[in-house]
Design a protein around this nucleic acid. Structure first.
Lengths: 336, 336
DNA sequence: ATAATTCGCTAAATCGATTTAGCAATCAAC
DNA sequence: GTTGATTGCTAAATCGATTTAGCGAATTAT
């Protein structure tokens, strides 16, 4: 394989027939283009014999389809996104597609850049966990008829072609568990990025408090600059424990929970108490902390799968689609 | 952006000059092809005005360069590989390249399939953490002049264009630490995949034992079927503790160490002892176990960076290159 | 028997770039 | 003042497929 490249022309010469015929046959349009059975067989045999592989560049140029889709996430090295990437890959493979990826680092600039780069590269569609500033750019492309699926985050309530978790209700359920477990003063630690996810999870927290008529105390609601800023998380947890007498803490996500959980574990050991935590997303490492917790596991594989399917349907359809898929996170309750 | 596509022909018509000129100018070959300064300016202005973007498909077809490279790993959702992916992405971006990825799941069949798919898709080069059966296939491509860099694993000692960790000496150092820390009977849990990594880490273990004249006891050397097979890891650890009276266990990698470490933690709690572990690779979650450990952190970012650079040099050079880069893992000693 | 279809296939345009060969015009040289 | 370079540009081939228009021959219909 790979020594000489065989083109349609080569087969055509060898066989003394036109390229068109071969193209028809190779694309399964033999019947449609009424190629004789004898000819079909002859061509297939020769093509196989010569090891013919269509040149995807030429095909792409001619047809405008590259059989490649783009995936843009905040950071592919983040396990949440790499898991999504994997499931998208698997689903893409099913459909004969390849995936190019890019990490935006939550930067509007980089995200826009990636979108444009990928678009210019003639990808057939885009799956993206958008940065805040992508709104207009994406909307324009979408109106142009370019297939796009938003995952994990979106911009406005009635947006279409999105796949997300039930951030609000999931978050609500977590906090509800905490409350039912006897926790009254529940701190909240989130991060500063201004996305739909951040907002909805917070709302879930608020709604649960409201339902059980607990005070919404802004002193125990904290925002750190970045999801990975261990120092800030640490100091906030310490402050909540030492100066605000919280019963438990709800963390925006698993990584933050683990970081904060370390502090709580220390505290539990020293104090003999048994403070627990809640968080969205789970991780097989959460249990290592050995403290009570309740979390909501997203259907990460499904997220990739569903988004890819949605994208394929857009790619293969003429009319505009408008779907919104909400994937329910599963509660893990290890409070007792 | 994105409404109408502007081609060379469009500009050419608009300006009344030939396409060649515009192509020269757009590719920075104005001087070389002696285009007048006035013309250069005129063309650049018009191109910008009309929002010209070269069609990558056409370029790729004509030049044979797609500005895309392939990345094949065992599983992109594995954090080790997703971190590599990220650093490759960053380095690729620097060079104006995009990355398509694929997961082989350690399957020879799938790996071969991916290599061929990517190759047929006309990627400019490939970075791969190969499955065992890829050897011949890759060799053939490489001999064809196709740029390939092997990462993490390789096939034979004097292989070229590879980037790996110092598996043997890193492993040796870890075990040495364990020994110096007073451990005499050190179990080893590895996994069954038949790769260079597995072999070299094991050799490091053996060498350390030899140097300190400790017995190589095959009864305490275990192999599980898969890196993620929690049950097998668990039962082996239990057996080593209960029936073989080991002082510590050396794990092939971090995920296995964490899984096994859970059991050891339990044991430590109940027995009042303080067994520790060693492992290759580290993880921020290792410390959550709260047991003594020594590990070797790979320079994962560097791995991606270096491999991409190596690949670029192959892509841009006429002659065959032969480089082997060994990246030293850093020891983390938390035994006391 | 003639007109109308159908069948099986070919020629050639096209996608959008790159690149070689070469044409006039200008300039320098002897 | 003819020869020779040099300059600035164009025409056209090419990469490798897809796809439309259409041409004879065979078949069917009238």
């Amino acid at each position: 394989m790979g020594f000489k490249k065989v083109s349609l022309k080569d087969i055509s010469k060898e066989l003394g027939v036109s390229q068109s015929l071969i193209s028809f046959v190779m694309n399964g349009k033999a019947k449609e283009m009424r190629v004789s059975d004898a000819m079909v067989e002859k061509i297939l045999k020769k093509a196989d014999e010569m090891g013919y592989k269509a040149n995807p560049m030429a095909q792409a140029l001619r047809t405008g389809k590259s059989n490649t889709i783009g995936l843009i996430v905040a950071d592919i090295s983040n396990s949440f996104y790499s898991k999504i990437a994997r499931s998208i890959e698997d689903e893409a493979t099913e459909h004969g597609y390849h995936v190019i990826f890019g990490s935006s680092d939550e930067s509007d600039k980089r995200s826009t850049e990636l979108i444009n780069l990928f678009y210019d590269k003639k990808i057939d569609g885009l799956i993206i966990s958008p940065a805040k500033g992508d709104r207009d750019n994406l909307l324009k492309l979408q109106n142009d008829g370019f297939p796009i699926v938003l995952i994990d985050r979106y911009f406005s309530e009635n947006e279409s072609n999105i796949v997300v978790a039930n951030n609000l209700s999931g978050s609500y359920e977590i906090v509800k568990r905490l409350i039912k477990n006897g926790n009254k003063k529940i701190g909240y630690i989130t991060h500063g990025t201004d996305s739909s996810v951040v907002m909805y999870r917070y709302q879930g927290y608020v709604q649960a408090l409201e339902e059980f008529e607990l005070e919404l105390n802004h002193q125990i609601i904290r925002e750190v600059s970045h999801i990975n800023n261990e120092k800030e998380i640490e100091s906030n947890v310490k402050d909540l424990i030492e100066n605000h007498n919280i019963d438990s803490i709800f963390f925006f996500n698993n990584t933050m929970a683990i970081e904060g959980g370390k502090i709580i574990r220390e505290y539990n050991k020293l104090s003999g108490r048994n403070l627990g935590i809640g968080c969205f997303d789970s991780s097989r490492y959460l249990e290592l902390l050995d403290i009570p917790y309740v979390s909501a596991v997203q259907q990460v594989e499904k997220l990739g799968e569903v988004s890819m399917r949605l994208l394929m349907r857009q790619i293969n359809s003429v009319s505009q689609l408008n779907e919104k898929k909400v994937l329910t996170a599963r509660l893990i309750d290890k409070l007792n």
